[in-house]
């Protein structure tokens, strides 16, 4: 897990591969192609790249129109603008008609860092998850991002993919599989289960190591798909370990933690601790400082595990 890769870099490279394989793949951006890495695609396929300028609403509508015309559009910008500013365009022009549009948002979460709270989306997973027909993905690392982008391209219908800005530890093997709607058990355990998404999965693996030294057996389940959530895997974890800790680089309201709690409340209630932002916005700082400040590290996960075990 020493190697680190930015998920957005893998996104850019995967788009180029998809562009070579399928002439229907087109890409849109809103003046952030250097940051979202769609610029790689624009250089190789300039005729299939559409910069919308700083106009996210129209970018989303154009993507819907391109899909209506038989193309497979990938539209990218930062998560705050993709899911926030263009929300109603996603609702009306993409989700409601079930358009084959892939919205790939980079710079999700607080690890955007120095740009501050205005640019750190802590609510995009919740917003997108609430839309009927929408599939929501949040890969853990570089290799899984490549597989998730390919799965999104192969899937017919609207997909929201949340990626990050910084380099994150590699958890998955190169060439790993990604099945929309299926989580992955990365480590087995019997005392509790970490259910995590995005970059928090790497932290959960570290936390499980620390707990193992205290003779606590922690399972780690990674959900690369937030919606549709892998109900079977979540309920299995609850039945077999009896305690859950969720962790996400997102508000604890409405995202992974919300989805897991809804699933457990209806299916198999057990004690849950949700790790994430506690109904607050982020702020400027380095990514590392912010993860510590908001309690999103392996050490915090260990504490959450101990709290949930005490409630068993």
């Amino acid at each position: 897990m020493s190697e680190k890769i930015a998920t957005r870099d893998v996104y850019g490279q995967t788009l180029v591969e998809l562009g070579r394989e399928n002439s229907k793949v087109v890409v849109l951006d809103a003046d952030l192609s250097g940051s979202t890495k769609t610029k790689l695609f624009s250089k190789e396929f300039p005729e299939r790249f559409f910069n919308a300028g700083i106009a996210e609403a129209n970018m989303t509508g154009m993507a819907a129109g391109l899909a209506a015309g038989g193309m497979i559009p990938f539209a990218s910008t930062f998560a705050v603008f993709a899911a926030g500013r263009a929300f109603e365009q996603i609702r009306q022009s993409v989700a409601y008609p079930g358009m084959n549009v892939k919205i790939v948002a980079t710079h999700g979460g607080i690890t955007v860092g120095e740009d501050g709270g205005s640019h750190q989306s802590v609510e995009d997973l919740a917003i997108m998850r609430s839309l009927p027909k929408m599939t929501v993905l949040c890969p853990a690392d570089g290799p899984e991002t490549g597989a998730a982008i390919r799965a999104a391209a192969a899937y017919k219908g609207p997909v929201y993919v949340r990626l990050g800005r910084g380099k994150v530890p590699v958890v998955f093997d190169q060439g790993c599989d990604f099945t929309i709607g299926k989580g992955v058990t990365l480590r087995d355990g019997s005392d509790l289960t970490f259910i995590t998404t995005g970059l928090m999965t790497a932290e959960a693996l570290l936390a499980a190591d620390i707990l193992a030294e205290e003779n606590i057996s922690a399972r780690v389940v990674h959900l690369g798909t937030i919606k549709p959530i892998d109900i079977d895997l979540v309920l299995k974890a609850a039945r077999e370990t009896g305690a859950i800790v969720t962790a996400e680089e997102h508000s604890v309201i409405g995202g992974l933690g919300g989805a897991v709690c809804e699933t457990l409340a209806e299916g198999y209630p057990v004690p849950v601790e949700r790790v994430g932002l506690r109904d607050e916005f982020g702020q400027s700082g380095t990514a590392e400082e912010l993860l510590v400040h908001y309690g999103l590290t392996a050490a915090h996960l260990v504490e959450a595990a101990e709290r949930t075990l005490a409630r068993k």
Binding site: A57, M62, G65, L66, A68, G69, Q92
Partner: peptide, 12 residues
């Protein structure tokens, strides 16, 4: 929103 989709359709 329709005109944006029309633009996308014209591009496609």
């Amino acid at each position: 929103q329709g005109i944006s989709q029309a633009v996308g359709l014209a591009m496609a």
